[in-house]
Design a protein around this nucleic acid. Structure first.
Lengths: 244, 244
DNA sequence: GCCGATTTGTCCGTATGTATC
DNA sequence: CGATACATACGGACAAATCGG
């Protein structure tokens, strides 16, 4: 939705890089040049470049310039990265994603749930189990805990489509950030049953546990995503901070 | 190393949050107030806050303020996150890390290596296998490929200590960013042998493949890190971008 | 509902520092 | 050494969202 100037420039540069207008290892035009190109201040150009750095598209070098380090990813497998709904990443990867709701109940957080999710004891929650298929193959089992007060009117029908679409488009919630922990865990009987994995083949799952916050600073979701290991691929770009 | 004003403010606010001066869900002082506190411009304060957002420490809300969303992590297990050497993360987690060099050879990239690492065919490389112990337990096997021309004078002795220390302190290289892909892969005989894992117990490993760039825009390292699944824990904070 | 005060978001122009060539 | 390029910092202006009266 951001139609700000810096965001426009960011998108323009990003697409130019993806198209190949700026090749791998090539220098982008200098900030001064970009200021003239986009008729804006240097701060605005710098902000756009900053976003590209975060994406791992370019690298700034004081005194030298801004170098493109974008390499088109091998889209062989299904990749995930930022905060995305299953539906969004399906579309981005040009796949056909569908969802089956295995379980949809209202629960109240007890000690055990509190320990796992971080919701205080007594909090009213929706608990869902959902199975995500990609091109007909069951890949992911999600265990979602949603804060009932923040996500009113959730139904199994919505859960079958896209909950994030409902939150953002209907409830006008803004999803902001997500703390995630990735681990590898033993396969469970539920995993085995729904994902059709042979434990002789793989006896582990890739697990992403996440706490997600909205723009009111409320943690409204805790989710444990259990991924079939042979289809799991998580991409990331990290920027080094000088130690100390 | 950065002794800039915004970095000083960033560190100060960060430590205040970690100490608990600003509690979970509490609002930080307004930008205007912070400007007076630190005697600087608003831009400088905003930049410091921006860093805290990236760290997942705070959340900004237009018209409301800046909310602290920092929760002290359960440091039960060994967590990794940003670009860090094994030595650095050992220290951060208050553990005793040691390294054993299993293999140290000079090789030239062939088709197979090129496909895996992204180094062009014919590139001269150091190839290392290293085993990392934490408190005496073998946890990680690293397969490192270093660009020989960018990392001259590397020795097994250095590899036993910290390669990043050598790169940064001795060669004065600046490590900038790292593209990482996390997957789950089947355990190999090498893994089994050195990490003492029983394949009946876990037959998978958490694998992080990374391409790392220095400030010259040169990809000087490709590494595959294979982690014992029962000790693997990767932390992350993602910021949602509006879809489209 | 309106209005004004507060707070963050965007954008501009300028000046100075630092690194590269 | 000077020219170029990015990094830091300042101050000001207006927009957008929020909140209280």
């Amino acid at each position: 939705m951001p139609k700000s100037k810096y965001h426009t420039i960011y998108k323009d540069l990003k697409s130019k890089i993806e198209i190949g207008d700026y090749a791998y290892q090539e220098l982008l035009p200098s900030e001064h040049t970009l200021v003239q190109t986009y008729d804006c201040s240097r701060n605005t150009v710098r902000r756009a470049i900053q976003e590209l750095v975060k994406d791992g598209y370019v690298q700034t070098m004081q005194g030298k310039g801004v170098r493109c380090i974008f390499l088109p990813a091998e889209q062989a497998s299904y990749t995930i990265g930022g905060i995305e709904s299953f539906r969004e990443s399906s579309i981005r990867n040009h796949r056909n994603g569908t969802t089956k709701v295995l379980c949809f109940v209202e629960i109240t957080a007890d000690e055990k749930i509190t320990k796992r999710t971080g919701f205080p004891v007594g909090t009213e929650l929706y608990y869902l189990q959902r199975l995500h298929y990609l091109d007909g193959i069951p890949l992911i089992i999600n265990h979602n805990y949603f804060l009932k007060s923040a996500v009113p009117g959730l139904t199994p029908e919505i859960a079958k489509q896209s909950i994030y679409e409902y939150l953002e488009d209907t409830l006008h919630m803004t999803i902001v950030n997500s703390k995630r922990i990735m681990t590898v865990e033993k396969i469970t009987q539920i995993d085995e049953k729904y994902l059709h994995i042979n434990a002789d083949d793989y006896n582990c799952m890739a697990v992403i546990s996440s706490q997600t916050f909205n723009s009111d600073g409320v943690m409204f979701e805790f989710t444990q995503s259990r991924h079939r290991p042979d289809y799991f691929r998580f991409q990331d770009n990290a920027v080094r901070k000088a130690p100390k």
